[in-house]
């Protein structure tokens, strides 16, 4: 028994210690520690905050969508945010997308429908680069999973714009950001105080907009998070009970050997 506990303890120490040694390596290379946020969707019971999602979507739509595509989302996915079918149709109809070829062989424009993907600001990567000093703004669909720090990093990036410290050599055309690796980012500060007017009346500070857009981007990257958490709680509970039952069954069967 003692040996089992020792072995398990060793295993646990290894399981926790090795990742702890490995993980900070990635962070340390980036330098400044990112402020840790507490999100409503944090494991294990976390869910998305619909109001925050809608505000974040508004920030994406009015600020980010000018340069950043969201190619993996379709307008119908917005149902998760609490919009009904007519609202989604109305949102989609605001955008013109290319369709075709028609019977004459030509491509044509038509208003988007819910089954269409989000309209991209540029037709291709080259156009995006050309319009942005050679640096194409990346697609945001998976940004919250594609960067170390995830939504914390996105929030930090949005609030991290400041004047370069004295003596820091800035390349032309770049902006100083406290949290961006290397500190010189091609994107100028995108979020301005009161830059958007939130439909629910929340004050649109830079921090608020940053938090909401990070929240929205987390949903965009992981729309099934809530189902995952819910199923996880059920499965873990089930397995805890089953393990208990099987342990007692095992002891019973082994009682004549011990």
């Amino acid at each position: 028994m003692r040996k089992t506990i020792l072995s398990l303890g060793l295993a646990a120490a290894v399981a926790l210690g090795v990742p702890a040694l490995v993980a900070p390596a990635a962070q340390a290379a980036e330098g400044v520690a990112i402020p840790k946020m507490s999100w409503s969707f944090a494991a294990p019971f976390g869910t998305y905050d619909r109001a925050a999602l809608q505000r974040g979507f508004q920030v994406y739509k009015e600020v980010c969508a000018a340069c950043h595509s969201m190619n993996l989302l379709a307008y119908r996915d917005l149902a998760d945010l609490g919009y009904n079918e007519n609202e989604i149709k109305a949102i989609a109809a605001q955008y013109e997308v290319t369709d075709g070829p028609n019977d004459q062989g030509e491509m044509f424009q038509r208003p988007a429908v819910p089954s269409d993907r989000f309209k991209a600001p540029f037709p291709n990567v080259q156009a995006a680069k050309a319009a942005n000093n050679g640096a194409a703004p990346p697609d945001l669909s998976l940004m919250a999973k594609g960067r170390i720090g995830g939504p914390d990093y996105i929030h930090a990036l949005m609030i991290g714009y400041e004047n370069a410290p004295a003596g820091f050599e800035m390349q032309p055309g770049l902006s100083y950001n406290k949290y961006f690796p290397g500190h010189q980012i091609a994107m100028p500060a995108p979020i301005n105080p009161d830059g958007v007017t939130f439909a629910d009346g929340t004050k649109a500070t830079v921090d608020q907009q940053s938090r909401d857009v990070a929240h929205f981007l987390m949903w965009a990257a992981e729309p099934k998070l809530e189902q995952r958490h819910r199923l996880g709680v059920q499965v873990v509970l089930f397995l805890l009970i089953l393990s208990g039952l099987l342990f007692v069954a095992k002891r019973r069967i082994w009682s004549d050997v011990h």
């Binding site: 494991a43 958490h229 996880g232 873990v236 805890l240 393990s243 099987l246």
Partner: peptide
């Protein structure tokens, strides 16, 4: 039965990562 018990515990640990830190 001992293997079955082991499976249940292993799947439990697996599920913790699968559902809460995939």
């Amino acid at each position: 039965v001992k293997d079955l018990f082991g499976v249940a515990v292993f799947l439990l640990v697996f599920s913790l990562f699968l559902f809460f830190s995939p």
